[in-house]
Every structure is written in structure tokens, then in C-alpha cells.
Simulated assay, not measured.
Amino acid sequence: MKNTFPGGEWPTMLTPFTKEGAVDYKALEKLVEWYLQNGVSGLFAVCQSSEMFQLSLEERVGVAEFVRKKAAGRVPVIASGHISDAIEDQAAELTEMSKTGVDAVILITNRLAKEKESDEVWLSNLKELLRRIPEDVPLGFYECPYPYKRVMSKETVSWCAKAGRFFFLKDTCCDIDRIREKLEMIKGTNLKLYNANTSTLLESLRLGAAGYSGVMANFQPKLYAWLCENYRSETADKLSDELSICSLIERQLYPVNAKYNLLLEGLPVETVCRVKNSADLTPTFQKEVQMLHRITERMNKEHR
């Protein structure tokens, strides 16, 4: 298998729901188009931002297949969705996801070992999982923060890079020294690193990271696409500073606030979520998102 994944911005996609709480495929279609119009390089269709731990397997597979079909021929689509504890159940979930035709199936690092278990246990479970899923399926990793964050070590990154089967690493360590180590481990291999953290993003791009895959692509996609393309520009440092401060909105009521931002963008998206109560988006929180939206509009004009 050869890595054809482009560098750039890969949004961690939201899942729109109807007022009744079902997946809203009409809104999802509009959302796919919004990402593409804002210059993304690929789409991460089923992840924590998608509320995957609250989606049934049928819904996870349905969302991934829908996004893959809508984006076909324009950008690649990846998806995760193995949320079970037992390896045999995870293998079944991943095999079903692979049937959707997505460009890669992404493994959740914390699913491969318990929080206090060693890298040796993690690697043993990974090898067992690989034996149980189709050999021709391109794979990647996501250091998902829920239910606990399992950041890959130099040793596990090195093994996976040498295996040749892994192409995408969504890094959430938020530590530029650890990112630098990982980039050294994957140099010259199929594996590419996509940083989820804004404050370390610019430096990581200059060190060789392939791009960005994070929450703020649901608020400021055009700006992150610009930064990934122009990270050596003289104005990149200023933009990076501004984006880092803007990214503090992540600490508010995500993903409810991101869906509210999409409403401000004119998308027919309800603020309904399964992981948070949309009623908790207070008038003050709404004002903060409105302010960010106005700031983003001004910044977009500066970086056309």
C-alpha cells in the first residue's frame, strides 16, 4: 500500500442530529459541502467530535459511508468507530467500517490497552487486532482523549511506522518535544502526523508534520487550511498566535458551541448533541461564539 494522503487540514467532523435526536443526513450533506468549500484536504468522518461513543454501530457505519460517497473524487475520507473493550468486538466493528470504502480506518489508541497497562500489552493487542481485520485495509491512529488519553510512545510509533500499514496519526499530545520525537520516528515511512493542537501546530508543520486535524476546523476551517499551506510565510506566526487564542473556545461547551457556530454560518444544523445538553449553551456562551464568528470573518478577509 502506498500513502496518497495529502497534507493540510482534516476536520474532525460533527454529526448533525434532528430535533428528535436522529442523524440528520440532509444537514450532514450541507456540512460536507461547507468543509470542502473552505479548502479542507480530507475528512475525518467518525471520531470523538462526531460523538462516536454515543452512536450505534449502524449509525457509525452509515455516517462514514454517506460522507465517503458525498466527498468521492474530491477529498479522501477516514473514519474510526471501534468503541468496544473486547478485541473481538473491536475487530467486528473495524471490519464493518472497512466495508464502507473509506480511505483508511482509524484505530483509537486507548482501545488497545487499559490506562495502566504497558506498551508491551498495547502492542500485543494491536498485533492480535491486525490478525482479525482485512489485510488490505489502510489504517491509522487517533490519540482520542476519551475515555482516557493514550499518547503513543517513541517505541510504539517506531513499530507502527516500520509496519508499513499505517498512514495517518492524529496526534493529541500537545507537546512539541514529543511531536518532534514522533516525526523523527516516522521520517521516510508511510505514516504521517496530523497535529490536533493549535498552539504547537505552526512549529510542528515547520518540523515536518503533515497538517492539522482538530476541533477548530469546525470554527475556522479556511484559516487552518491557509496556515497548513503557508506555514513558512512571514504572516504565519501572527496568524498562529491569533488562532491559538481563538482555540480557547474549545474549553466552552463543545460540540454544542461548534454546531451553534455552523448555524451562524447559515447551515441547517440543530445544536442537538448526545454528549452535552444544548440547553447549557447560555446567552453568554452564545455571545462568545458570535464574537469568535465576527473575528473569524475579519481574519478570513486578511488571508484570502
Rank of each mutant, 00 (worst) to 15 (best):
A45R: 09
E33V: 14
T95K: 11
S56W: 09
K114I: 01
S118E: 07
G81K: 08
S98E: 12
K116F: 15
V77F: 07
S50Y: 09
V46N: 05
H82T: 03
K69Q: 14
I87W: 05
F53I: 14
E96C: 00
K116A: 13
G73K: 02
E93G: 05
S80W: 01
E120H: 03
G62M: 00
G39C: 07
V77E: 11
V102F: 00
I78N: 06
T100R: 03
I87H: 01
T100Y: 07
V61L: 02
Q37R: 15
L123G: 08
V63F: 07
V40Y: 01
A72Q: 13
L57T: 06
Q54L: 14
S84K: 06
L112C: 04
L123P: 02
V105R: 08
D103P: 15
Y35N: 11
L31C: 08
V40T: 03
V32S: 01
V105G: 10
H82L: 01
F44W: 14
T95C: 07
K114H: 01
V77G: 11
L57V: 12
A71D: 01
A86Q: 14
A92N: 12
A113P: 05
K114D: 00
F44K: 09
G39K: 05
N38R: 15
K114A: 04
E33N: 09
E51M: 12
V75P: 10
R111G: 02
S50V: 02
D85W: 13
K70Q: 11
S56L: 04
S124K: 12
E88S: 10
K69E: 13
I78M: 08
D85P: 00
E59H: 06
L57K: 06
V77S: 09
V105Q: 06
E88C: 00
N38A: 08
A104F: 14
F44P: 06
S84L: 05
P76H: 10
F66H: 08
E93M: 04
Q37N: 13
A71F: 06
M97S: 03
M52Y: 03
R111N: 08
Y35T: 13
F53D: 15
L57S: 04
S84Y: 04
G101H: 15
V67Y: 04
L123Y: 10
W34S: 06
G73H: 12
A86T: 10
E33R: 00
A104E: 02
K30W: 00
T109V: 10
K30D: 03
M97Q: 03
Y35K: 12
